[in-house]
Computed example of a mutant assay.
Amino acid sequence: MVAVRARKSGAVPQALYQRIRADLEEKIMSGRWPPGHRIPFEHELVDTYNCSRMTVNKVLSGLADAGVIERKRGVGSFVAKPLVQSAVLHIPDIQAEIAKRGESYGYELLARRRRPATADDIARLGIGTRCDVLSLRCRHIAKGRPFALEERLINLDVVPLAADIDFRQVPPGTWLLGHVPWNEAEHRITASLVDQPTAKALALDPPAACLVVERRTWRKRKIITAVRVSYPSDLYQLTARFTPATRSWR
């Protein structure tokens, strides 16, 4: 419980405000409070942090302005649902995509390792300092045929809860979309000939081409995950339909 009180009118002590906001953000970022989770009511937070209602309101307003939570009048505050659209591409849930196509879905966790980030991990994550990562290698199957090979790094300094998830039962992408909000994503799309391990995992005869989607996602400038997904070229396509934000006539 926070010992400092701020019940008098006037400016909210910045250190207290920052501590409460950081604590709530950590619960959200770690996945302990997943999207849709109800934030404790204002009076509950007042009791928890031993502070004024003005301080709590300022914290919740700041989180709402940042898109971290949604405030619903008369109902309460909730962890915001993760965005699912970027400028052109969406972040897919492969399991849901296959089901939407009316095809049977299968999933295999091929490798799982928790470790301090290597130099290659740091380069993939695009960070300047070392962290602990969870390295996952998964195979997604549609109609009995390998559909995608997923190679993912999860930053455990940002999402420590991921270390305790049984990814033999749930695909990491599905779990992350359902539990960890994000507000920025980057896609890199290439076509390349597969190496021998990838060809074996996807049951391809080299030389074979794959569509490779590399993606990183962030929350409040903190990298959450970096993933590389390889698709056999005949099984996957990217389609985007959009309109310009502004239109000019010359």
Rank of each mutant, 00 (worst) to 15 (best):
P35S: 00
A96V: 04
D157G: 15
P172Y: 06
W249Y: 11
E150G: 04
G31I: 05
G178W: 02
A117T: 09
P232W: 01
R5L: 12
V79S: 07
I189W: 03
V227M: 05
K222S: 13
P35E: 01
P206T: 11
N57Q: 15
G126E: 01
I141P: 04
L176C: 04
A15R: 15
A203C: 10
L211R: 13
F242V: 11
R38C: 01
K143R: 13
R228Y: 01
A185S: 14
F242E: 09
Q95N: 01
V84M: 10
I189R: 04
I98V: 15
A201M: 11
V88E: 06
V46T: 00
P92C: 01
A201I: 12
A22F: 07
S30I: 01
W175S: 08
P206V: 10
G67N: 07
L63N: 04
R113E: 15
N155L: 10
L177T: 05
K100H: 05
T55N: 00
A6Q: 12
L83Q: 07
K8W: 08
V12K: 08
K143C: 10
P116D: 14
Y107E: 06
A64W: 04
Q237I: 05
L149E: 09
W175Y: 15
Y107I: 03
R21Q: 13
W182T: 04
R145M: 07
I141N: 06
Y105I: 02
I122G: 00
N155I: 12
R38N: 00
A3K: 13
I223R: 12
K72G: 02
P244T: 07
L136K: 03
A162K: 10
Q169I: 11
I165F: 11
A11L: 13
N155K: 11
E26K: 14
R219D: 03
